[in-house]
Amino acid sequence: NFQHFSGIFTGFQAGLNFNAQTRERFSFGGNLNYGTERKDFFEPRQGTTSGIYFLQPERKNINIWISTNSQKLFAVDFDAFYSSFSNNPKSGYGFGLAPRYRFSNQFSLRYQLNFNKTNNDQGFVDQNANAIIFGMRDFKNYTNTIGGNYSFSTNSSLSLSLRHYWGSATYSGFYNLNNYGGLDENTTYIGENVNFNNWNLDLNYIWQFAPGSQLIAFYRNSISNADSNSNLTFFENLENLFNQSQRHTFSIRFVYFIDYEKIKKLI
């Protein structure tokens, strides 16, 4: 890879992919990926023309996935990954699970869970007059999603979407970015852990009462919260989230399609 305007060589990446499907429509696959040490001009947040970069470590990564027959009443998707880094304590892993069930031609439900964890990640935190501050952190995020759809008819349907995202970072040390893309220990900087939550529950009704014309009724319940309580367990964090104030939104949208040619003929 090369930086697009300067031509500076930033690093080399390669991958090998495999995908297959059985006669029963069971799909599976995976990939192996390798990346050399590379110059990252984005992570220092100084603009790509500044010439300031962070040396990302050599990376090895494996991903696998499976998907059962989507024509069946019950189906499930699953994927997982693991990443390791040479001469660096950083490592990462995660998985995704998405079962779904079709109760009838009118009603279906889907649940999806995604989890990612990175240990000893190094990334930008702050900047002062003397230094660009990086932090060593353990980072994790969960995303839980429930989606459902019920069709009353070909022209009328009700959908539900519930999504909770939780991301947190716990810092173990802080560093100054040096002129060679490396990190020098900073013992004076004081930073806080990061804990962020976002919750949305959406209920949406659509009625197509004429070609190109719709009546849409929408309701949303939402909560957002940001603090430094990154050491909470999942359920402690959820309890803390629901102690925050909630926001309710309701809207009705009316869309009517006017055929100009028909009106022209009537006139």
Rank of each mutant, 00 (worst) to 15 (best):
S213M: 03
N195H: 11
N229P: 08
S108M: 13
E192A: 11
Y219R: 08
F42I: 15
I252L: 12
S67Q: 15
P99F: 02
Y189H: 06
F26R: 04
S251M: 09
Y111H: 04
F12A: 12
A80K: 00
G147Q: 08
I216K: 08
N33V: 12
S228K: 00
N130T: 03
Q21F: 03
S213T: 06
Y142M: 09
I190T: 15
N17H: 13
N195Y: 07
R25L: 15
T249C: 02
L183W: 01
G191V: 01
E185D: 12
I190M: 10
W207T: 03
I263K: 08
N176P: 00
G147A: 10
L266G: 11
Q112I: 09
S156K: 06
S228D: 10
Y219F: 12
L266N: 15
N33Q: 10
G96H: 01
S159D: 07
L109P: 09
V125C: 05
N19Y: 09
I66V: 10
A129Y: 08
F242L: 02
F95Q: 03
F95C: 04
I216R: 07
W207K: 07
G173E: 03
A20M: 00
T143Q: 14
N31Q: 06
F103Y: 12
F74I: 06
S224Q: 06
Y111F: 06
Y189R: 05
L183R: 00
Q214G: 01
Y175G: 15
F152S: 04
Q244V: 06
G182H: 14
G167K: 12
S251G: 05
K39P: 02
N61L: 14
Y189I: 04
W199G: 09
S50N: 01
K60C: 04
S151L: 03
T170Y: 01
I263C: 09
F28A: 00
N128M: 04
Y150P: 05
D138G: 07
N176F: 00
N186T: 06
F78V: 10
S161I: 14
N149V: 13
P211A: 03
Y171E: 11
F5T: 05
P44W: 11
L215N: 00
G123V: 10
L232K: 06
F107L: 11
Q246K: 12
N198R: 09
Y142F: 11
K72L: 15
N88F: 04
D79T: 05
R100S: 07
D202G: 11
I267N: 14
L162I: 14
W166A: 02
N193C: 09
R253G: 04
G167H: 09
T188A: 04
